[in-house]
């Protein structure tokens, strides 16, 4: 037990260092960005009409003249105390903005994560088990096609088919236009989330399916499968293949969290879905440093948390780690 505790503590320290690195990188990239926050947010014409004092106050608000090191350190100091600052664009605490956006995105992310994982696993196993036959070729071909299709293009395609031609699904946003927030039914929300979620799932499936297929093929080529056949065993797929594919599948599934979150940025943009990904784009383009750093750190923490969960689950699933830990 102390073994696993030690492992977790070590991982958490690494996570802290990683978050520090990620936030610093995001900060430096943003700082180097040629976008002038005043021009993008206030507008060229409005700026020209302002008095120098007004401009100076705006510059102070957007932190234009504060040295970079000072700005980062003051953000970091606040972050360590749990205060991620106030979003410059939304004029609300960053944590509040992230909380609200995340709750809009979370359903989308979890649905896409679960669906792409389950579908990818099933297709990968099917392809691997029927390797060389037409099912395998069909699945592999489809996956290769999908993985070379950009997510935003797929999103546009689905929009055109389901929202423009067939008119069965809304064209964007999370709720119907003009409806009061509390009058929107759950069904309406689901209808709005469906296309983004499906797009996101589809783009995640191919990677998982192709990797799973390779694993299945490796396992099928192993000596123990040969032995199982030589012993006339039945249900080899269930007894031996699934068991041995479980671990790599677990890694794949948790590693795909990052891809899903990354994909959500583009997909939410196309569907004008007011989630975390869309907020990240606005923050980046609008020079909203506190919000961008907040989102970056939050998503990095989610991805890292996913990997940590995979590592801990490994200890539960893999007898070599489970028993090894028990022995020493």
């Amino acid at each position: 037990m102390s073994h696993r505790l030690q492992f977790t503590v070590k991982k958490l320290i690494r996570m802290a260092l990683l978050l520090l690195g990620v936030s610093l990188t995001a900060f430096l990239l943003m700082d180097a960005s040629p976008l002038d926050p005043l021009q993008t947010n206030v507008g060229q014409a409005a700026l020209g009409a302002m008095s120098p004092e007004q401009v100076a106050r705006l510059e102070a608000y957007w932190g234009v003249n504060t040295p970079a090191a000072e700005r980062y350190l003051s953000w970091l100091g606040g972050a360590l105390r749990g205060d991620l600052g106030v979003s410059l664009l939304y004029r609300r605490p960053v944590l509040e903005v992230i909380g609200q956006r995340l709750s809009a995105s979370l359903g989308l992310l979890i649905f896409a994560w679960a669906l792409s994982g389950a579908l990818g696993l099933a297709l990968g196993i099917l392809a691997g088990a029927s390797r060389g036959r037409w099912t395998d070729r069909l699945i592999r071909g489809g996956c290769l096609l999908l993985s070379s299709t950009p997510a935003f293009w797929l999103a546009l395609l689905l929009l055109i088919v389901f929202s423009v031609w067939l008119r069965v699904l809304p064209i964007g946003l999370a709720v119907p236009i003009g409806a009061a927030a509390d009058s929107v039914t759950l069904l309406e929300r689901l209808r709005h989330a469906l296309l983004p979620a499906v797009t996101l799932s589809i783009t995640g499936v191919s990677g998982i399916a192709l990797h799973t297929r390779e694993k299945v093929v490796d396992v099928l080529d192993s000596d123990y499968i040969l032995f199982a056949r030589a012993r006339g065993e039945e249900r080899i797929l269930r007894r031996h293949v699934l068991r041995n594919v479980a671990l790599p599948a677990l890694t794949l599934q948790f590693a795909s969290i990052g891809e899903i979150i990354g994909g959500s940025v583009l997909v939410e943009q196309v569907f004008s879905y007011p989630g975390l990904g869309q907020a990240a784009v606005s923050a980046g383009l609008g020079g909203d440093m506190p919000l961008l750093l907040g989102i970056t750190v939050t998503t990095a923490a989610i991805v890292f948390g996913g990997n940590l969960a995979a590592d801990l689950l490994y200890g539960v699933v893999d007898p070599r780690i489970r028993r090894g830990a028990a022995r020493g």
Partner: peptide, 9 residues
């Protein structure tokens, strides 16, 4: 070989 046993079973 002894690799003919399923490592996960």
């Amino acid at each position: 070989g002894v690799t003919w046993l399923d490592p996960m079973m």
